[in-house]
Design a protein around this nucleic acid. Structure first.
Lengths: 231, 231
DNA sequence: CCCCTAATGGGACTCCCGTTCCGTTAGGAT
DNA sequence: ATCCTAACGGAACGGGAGTCCCATTAGGGG
């Protein structure tokens, strides 16, 4: 019933991100709750609420979120959730910031095709997993409903893409692909068909789809489709 | 302020789809409203509400939808909207069914690269357009919140993909790409990077992105990345 | 160890979304 | 043209999400 893929079960105390969920602009009024005493109870509350929010997202989806329900699951006062996050979108944005911290290590197979296939299969397994898949669909929805959540989502994917870009750079150094290849574009090209399939079709997201995505990106990169064009 | 891309302004009378919005299963009770007398006023109401829903989606996004607001825009009773559609997701599903009817004709340039580039630029222009882009984001969100809307979205994309698949078949016949190429997969491969970019980055969706997507799909198809694998 | 106050939690209150009821309007068949 | 009733529209109702107020709890600096 707990998390399935990464989430290395951090100790309940000392949370991942003591940063303020919503860093108010230059308003030097009463600071947003959770920023002045971020330790101890505050941290436990944040962890419990994020965990509960993740569960709720998986079960009900984004627009089925009920902050009262989340508060109950987290065994936290309803008021607290409203005060600290203020709404479902900010809560999801905070969850995304938390997810962005947990980076899974990249493998290295020695060839571009192998590396991209490993990446494709990782993405495929994540999206095909009932829990993770539902979670990703939900956060994508949230990102399309709120600017802050959108920025958080972009940050999450920036991190993920940066994590895998070095395997493309390595391929350039090995001479597999043109030297002016945009490494980020290649990594994105691997994920894109998988997300597109998940969002617009009912066909299963299987390993064959992953391998096809990886092969397509590899061939296109070799052919120079991702070379930087100067404007 | 009206529609920008296709929508050939159908006459207010005689709407596009007199089919029932939500064909209830075998419940032979009082049939769903709009099915027994689909002409005249009922049709005008449907057209006005769908139009208003589209406007609202563009302005507020899916989760900002307010059926009361839509009813006012459409100059229709609030009760009518609730009775005929019952909720925002069913309304969006109906809108998607309506959108699926309007197929824009495919061009034919004589080469796979040219055809795919035309397709890519069409998709890019659609998603980059403020109105259409917001609309597509909104319906994607809706599809992730409701099974009926999801099915309607899949149907929409199935139509679009089928519309463009023949240009891949033609390329096969010209000997440009392997004969066992999955034509639908190729067409999807063109759109995928554009949607992925729109959803996960803040970078502009420009013509260069479209051309890159088209070129990548073309090269990958030539290299046989989309050949059918028998299981 | 003690104090100050940030942060939490319960409960009442408000407002708005969605439903229900019933009278009115207008298809469409004869 | 007339009738029957499907479909619409206004108004009142109920419930739940989000807000406010204040008492209670527990960081964390001294």
């Amino acid at each position: 019933m707990a998390a399935e893929l990464p989430r290395p079960e951090p100790p309940p105390s000392e949370p991942a991100t003591p940063e303020p969920p919503t860093p108010e602009p230059a308003t030097t009024g009463p600071s947003t709750p959770g920023t002045v005493r971020p330790g101890g109870r505050t941290a436990r509350v944040r962890a419990a609420v994020l965990r509960a929010a993740e569960d709720a997202l998986v079960e009900r989806g984004f627009n089925g979120l009920d902050l009262g329900d989340i508060a109950q699951r987290a065994e936290v006062g309803r008021t607290t959730v409203y005060r600290r996050w203020g709404g479902t979108t900010a809560l999801v944005a905070d969850l995304l910031a938390d997810m962005a911290e947990q980076s899974l290590p990249r493998t290295d197979s020695g060839s571009l095709a192998g590396d991209l296939r490993a990446n494709a299969r990782l993405v495929q397994r994540t999206l095909a997993d009932p829990r993770q898949g539902a979670l990703f669909r939900a956060v994508i929805v949230a990102a399309n409903c709120d600017p802050d959540a959108a920025e958080a989502l972009r940050h999450f994917y920036r991190r993920r893409v940066e994590e895998w870009a070095p395997c493309v750079t390595a391929a350039v150094e090995r001479g597999e692909i043109p030297s002016d290849t945009d490494e980020f574009e290649v990594v994105r090209a691997v994920s894109a068909p998988l997300y597109y399939r998940m969002l617009t079709t009912a066909e299963p997201l299987d390993e064959a789809a992953a391998d096809r995505a990886a092969q397509a990106a590899t061939e296109a990169a070799r052919a120079g489709a991702y070379r930087r064009r100067d404007a």
